[in-house]
Design a protein around this nucleic acid. Structure first.
Lengths: 123, 123
DNA sequence: TCGAGTGTACTATGTATAATAGGACACACA
DNA sequence: TGTGTGTCCTATTATACATAGTACACTCGA
């Protein structure tokens, strides 16, 4: 699964998202080691600095743990709702997006169905 | 309600969103006239070109209708699901956002509650 | 017809972000 | 000691956003 311009997000943001997806879906588990920045850069046809930027962001968000000359590892997941400010911000973005979707004529039921399906897939 | 950097969206995108919100909520109705680009620019402390960009995008999406030396007016709303490609793109963005939200520890029930509330408010 | 108001088009400028490239350094570990 | 690791730095290129200023074509009422 190469990094493409899916959704128009910058590459490093897509990487951040993918790592979180893989954690949520159990593909990556706490303690697992991520590919090195150079290895990941080779795989994804990116510059190592771009990968490093993604890892740095994941580190800031406490998703991964970095050991200097060794590698990066997946941290324990926060089960409890962590950062309230982040939740509020995400909710705001979701509601904006929902305005778009509603304007396109998609009914509430269908959107809710999308949500349910996504959460089931993640288990 | 001035245009701010709510959600970090560019000004013209925020304008586009606001117009759609006001249509969905019935504040703007088909046939209503929008403020001229210069008037809106004065209200929102923006450059007329920025407003024009927003209007142009709304025109492209068939949300408003432009009459050259006269003004811009709200079009009839599409009740049926209009552009499938747009729906697919929006769904993709929603699912990406959902990964974030799920990672933050927000359960499906709560997200669905957000959706329902938003749709009710829109009526 | 005239003029005010309207949308539109164009160029130029400044700022910020994204991504790349290349190089250098410090750390871990066999 | 050497290889692989994360990190940092500067420079460059490309793109998007927003502003500014100017100009043009259109509508419509006076």
């Amino acid at each position: 699964m190469p990094v493409s311009d899916q959704s128009g997000l910058p590459y490093y943001e897509q990487l951040v998202l993918r790592v979180k997806q893989q954690i949520v879906r159990g593909i990556l588990r706490p303690g697992d080691r991520l590919p090195s920045v150079r290895e990941m850069a080779r795989q994804e046809q990116l510059n190592p600095n771009t990968v490093s930027k993604a890892y740095k962001q994941l580190e800031t968000q406490n998703v991964i743990r970095t050991v200097h000359g060794k590698g990066t590892y997946v941290r324990e997941t926060n089960d409890a709702v962590a950062d309230t400010a982040q939740v509020v911000a995400s909710k705001q973005r979701l509601l904006s997006l929902l305005t778009e979707i509603r304007y396109l004529g998609v009914p509430a039921d269908e959107v809710i169905e999308w949500i349910k399906t996504a959460y089931e897939e993640a288990d």
